[in-house]
Simulated assay, not measured.
Amino acid sequence: MIILLVASGILIMLYEGIPLLKNRLWRELVTVGILIASAVFLGIAEMLGVTTPIPWLEQLVGPLGQTIFK
């Protein structure tokens, strides 16, 4: 499962990163890379059972999302 998560992160980075690289949008490329890397890291940590801020974020943002998308 971890391999699938890492592979999907790489595919997303390639899909999003190649146009940014061609247009020489370095800041955007770094931002997308950091966001994807942090998402992959949090996903792996969640799978391994390491304490992450994901439950706190779900409690904080969950009711707001339920209100908006009701």
Rank of each mutant, 00 (worst) to 15 (best):
M1R: 15
M1L: 11
M1S: 14
I2W: 02
I2S: 11
I3A: 13
I3N: 15
I3T: 12
L4M: 13
L4V: 12
V6Y: 01
S8D: 12
S8M: 14
G9K: 02
G9L: 01
I10P: 00
L11S: 11
L11W: 10
I12L: 13
I12Q: 07
L14H: 03
L14R: 05
L14G: 02
L14W: 08
L14I: 13
Y15A: 12
Y15W: 12
E16Q: 08
G17K: 03
I18G: 04
I18E: 04
P19A: 11
P19R: 09
P19N: 11
L20M: 09
L20H: 02
L21V: 02
K22D: 06
K22G: 00
N23K: 13
N23V: 05
N23F: 05
R24Q: 13
R24E: 07
R24N: 07
L25W: 09
L25E: 13
W26G: 01
R27E: 09
R27N: 10
V30Y: 14
V30G: 00
V30A: 11
T31N: 08
I34M: 07
I34A: 07
L35N: 04
L35K: 08
L35D: 04
L35R: 10
I36H: 00
I36K: 02
A37M: 08
A37F: 10
S38M: 11
S38Y: 12
S38L: 15
A39Y: 09
A39F: 10
V40E: 05
V40S: 08
F41C: 14
F41G: 06
F41H: 08
F41D: 04
L42I: 13
L42F: 15
L42Y: 15
I44E: 03
I44P: 05
I44N: 03
I44V: 11
I44W: 01
I44A: 03
A45G: 01
A45C: 07
E46P: 00
E46D: 12
M47E: 13
M47T: 09
L48A: 15
L48K: 14
L48N: 07
G49Q: 08
V50Q: 10
T51L: 06
T52Q: 00
T52P: 04
P53D: 05
P53N: 00
I54N: 02
I54W: 06
W56I: 14
W56H: 10
W56A: 09
W56T: 11
L57E: 05
L57A: 15
E58N: 08
Q59T: 10
Q59A: 06
L60Y: 13
L60F: 15
L60T: 14
V61W: 10
V61L: 10
G62V: 05
P63K: 06
P63H: 06
L64P: 01
G65V: 14
G65Y: 14
G65Q: 13
Q66E: 09
I68Q: 08
I68K: 04
I68D: 01
F69I: 14
F69K: 09
F69N: 10
F69V: 10
K70Y: 11
